[in-house]
Design a binder for these strands. Structure first.
Lengths: 140, 140
DNA sequence: ATGTCTGCAAAAGATTTGCAACCAG
DNA sequence: CTGGTTGCAAATCTTTTGCAGACAT
């Protein structure tokens, strides 16, 4: 399933004039198989574990390329290296548990709408936004 | 006005057991006098321009200290060095013009409430959050 | 007096880049 | 074949830190 998704993306990349190298194909699969939010070093480790040699420099370059192609999204949580996630899901924001480091996803249509309204009122269009809730489990 | 604010903060710092050195007093004034969102290098430059010698290392250390005291807040916009702002204003979020780099502030009570509701529904309390709108001026 | 702060220079951590060899289309 | 890619190592950029001397209280 994530395997076919990866293959599907390869077509799109080639169509966009981006060469599908051994390294890129591997990273595409590693990302498609990840349901968490790995950083560059972690993706590098997973590719190696999958038996594909890739340099860390190439991992960074590939991430930038895939982001430009709209295949992945970059997440920058407070004070940690950037993390990445597949961009095929529907839009969502993140909630980070400060105690466990766990990252959860959520969506709220009303917030999205309000944001657009605020920008519009001030004469702007939103290109993208970032909403992160840093939380702690409620203890009662 | 920002001058008295700075003096006022010095009292609070001393009361909290934080020594008010020449460097800290200067940075306090530079920050109180800034209505934009300067980064460490910029604050360093402004302090120097004000005639107070401070090392960049001390600027960083001081910013961390002032943040811990709740005097300033750290802003981390996409891919730029961290910026800082005085924490005396009421809470607000930021809107960044991608073309000009201009940073604007806004507040929306409804969004704040919705965020709290979302966290509560999932069993969490919000410690702090980050909402940034990356925008482009609407052209019609 | 004394424990906190500072400056300097070196270190650290994440990410980027120059260049020669390599390989996808 | 040939220009886009890669690996390596070095460079960059921001921020942090060890240490010895300086200073606020």
């Amino acid at each position: 399933m994530s395997e076919e998704r990866a293959t599907q993306l390869e077509q799109a990349l080639r169509a966009a004039g981006v060469r599908v190298t051994r390294q890129r194909a591997a990273l595409l699969r590693v990302i498609a198989a990840s349901d968490d939010h790995p950083d560059a070093a972690e993706l590098h480790a997973r590719a190696e574990k999958a038996g594909v040699g890739v340099s860390l420099a190439t991992v960074y370059r590939t991430l930038t390329t895939l982001q430009a192609q709209g295949v992945i999204e970059k997440l920058e949580f407070q004070g940690e290296p950037a993390r990445w996630e597949a961009a095929d899901q529907t839009h969502h924001d993140h909630m980070i548990d400060l105690d466990t480091g766990e990252v959860m996803e959520f969506t709220n249509e009303r917030i999205e709408r309000l944001q657009a309204e605020i920008a519009a009122e001030m004469g702007y269009d939103i290109v993208h936004h970032r909403l992160e809730l840093y939380v702690r489990r409620r203890r009662d």
